[in-house]
Amino acid sequence: MPAPKNLFKSAIRADRFQLGLWVALASPYAAEIVSGSGYDWLLIDGEHAPNDIPLLSAQIQAVSRSGGHPIVRLPVGETWMIKQILDTGAQTLLIPMVESVEQAQALVRAVRYPPHGVRGVGAALGRASQFSRIGDYLETANAEICLIVQIESRAGLAALDEIAALDGIDGLFIGPSDLAADMGHLGQPGHADVTAAIGDAFARIKKAGKAAGIMTLDLDQARLYRDMGATFMAIGTDVTLLVSATERLREDFLSGSKSDVKPVSGY
Score class of each variant (00 low, 15 high):
N6G: 02
F17N: 00
P28G: 05
Y29H: 11
Y29F: 13
A30W: 01
G46R: 02
N51V: 01
P54E: 06
L56V: 02
Q59M: 11
L74M: 03
T79A: 15
M81Y: 05
K83C: 03
Q91S: 10
T92I: 10
T92Q: 03
L94G: 08
M97K: 13
E99D: 15
V101L: 02
V101D: 01
A104M: 11
R109I: 01
R109H: 08
H116Q: 13
R119T: 08
G120V: 03
G122A: 14
L125N: 12
G126M: 06
D136K: 10
A143G: 11
S153I: 07
G156W: 01
G156S: 06
I163E: 09
A164V: 00
D167C: 06
I169T: 05
G171E: 02
G171D: 07
F173L: 05
I174V: 15
G175Q: 03
S177Y: 11
A181W: 10
P189H: 07
G190Y: 01
A192F: 01
A197T: 05
I198N: 00
G199W: 06
D200A: 14
I205S: 03
G209Y: 00
G209W: 00
A211K: 04
I214F: 05
I214N: 03
L224D: 13
G229V: 06
T231K: 06
M233T: 07
I235N: 01
G236P: 08
G236Y: 09
V239Q: 11
E251R: 14
D252M: 02
D252E: 14
D260V: 14
V261L: 15
K262H: 12
K262E: 15
